[in-house]
């Protein structure tokens, strides 16, 4: 199987700081990691390879330092990695990102499955996976919690839905996004770390992908981030005190006042 795992390097924190001028994430001084959900995607890719044979290629669109994330991916079992990096890609929204990734996957050639994390820790949109499938023109399954069966040209998985799970079959090639319930990612191995250190990681630019610079990065993005802010917490809880009967009366009158009953 030819397995492609898409991953993103993100700041190792949920407390993302945003530059008020440019509305982009401040990366300085914050350690970068593989987006946690993408590490589940990578682990599932490596397990799939161990089960069915084949090759895992990790790809990432990002700044030059995203190469570290790709080296880490190799230490965790990826066979090869490609960094998609060009100044023209900066400021891409999910559409422009998916567009660029789709071009890179096209350049990689024949593939059976593309695995992505459900969403990223920083952007949190969860859109790149489905957009990528759309652009590649292949089947898409979101929120996969288990790969039940892989047959030639066919895949059966469980996908999480709000009240349980669905079992879905899709024709291959396909794109799936995974949830953290799917596996427990392994730690790196000494041999993996040695391979990661010496691996050659090619860098593909817009030119090498044959992409029009106007269609990628900020200029290829349909959306603009106008403002990024942490929402004010307006609701707050209250614990009623006193005798049970009094508490019930108080609760009922509060609910009436609020127009709930």
């Amino acid at each position: 199987m030819n397995i492609i795992v898409c991953l993103k390097q993100v700041p190792a924190t949920t407390e993302v700081k945003v530059d008020p001028q440019t509305n982009t994430i401040i990366r300085e001084g914050i350690k970068s990691i593989i987006n946690p959900l993408d590490s589940y995607a990578l682990e599932e890719g490596v397990r799939l390879k161990e089960r069915c044979g084949g090759k895992v290629t990790a790809i990432s669109m990002g700044p030059p330092q995203a190469e570290e994330a790709l080296r880490e991916a190799i230490s965790l079992g990826a066979d090869e990695a490609v960094l998609i990096c060009d100044k023209a890609f900066a400021g891409a929204d999910t559409w422009a990102t998916a567009y660029t990734l789709a071009a890179a996957i096209g350049k990689l050639g024949q593939y059976d499955i593309v695995i992505c994390g459900r969403q990223t820790l920083d952007g949190d949109t969860g859109q790149v996976g489905p957009q990528l499938a759309e652009m590649l023109g292949v089947a898409f399954i979101a929120y996969v919690s288990k790969i039940e069966e892989v047959a030639p040209q066919r895949l059966r998985v469980r996908r999480m839905v709000e009240e349980g799970y669905e079992v879905i079959e899709a024709a291959l090639p396909a794109v799936i996004t995974v949830v953290k319930e799917i596996n427990v990612p392994r730690l790196p191995s000494l041999r993996g770390l040695a391979r990661a250190k010496s691996a050659a990681i090619p860098v593909w630019t817009a030119g090498e992908l044959g992409l029009d610079p106007k269609l990628v990065g900020l200029s290829g993005s349909f959306t603009r981030v106008i403002k990024v802010f942490s929402p004010q917490r307006t609701c707050r809880g209250e614990v009623l005190q006193g005798e049970l009967e009094g508490q019930v009366e108080c609760l009922v009158s509060r609910l009436k006042d609020a127009g709930v009953i």
Binding site: R186, L187, P188, S189, L190, R191, G192
Partner: peptide, 20 residues
């Protein structure tokens, strides 16, 4: 098992016998 997966048991075994 985690130590094995991380190649830790290979540390003390010679290279000729699949160690490091």
């Amino acid at each position: 098992k985690d130590l094995a997966d991380a190649d830790m048991f290979r540390v003390f075994v010679p290279k000729e016998y699949e160690g490091l």
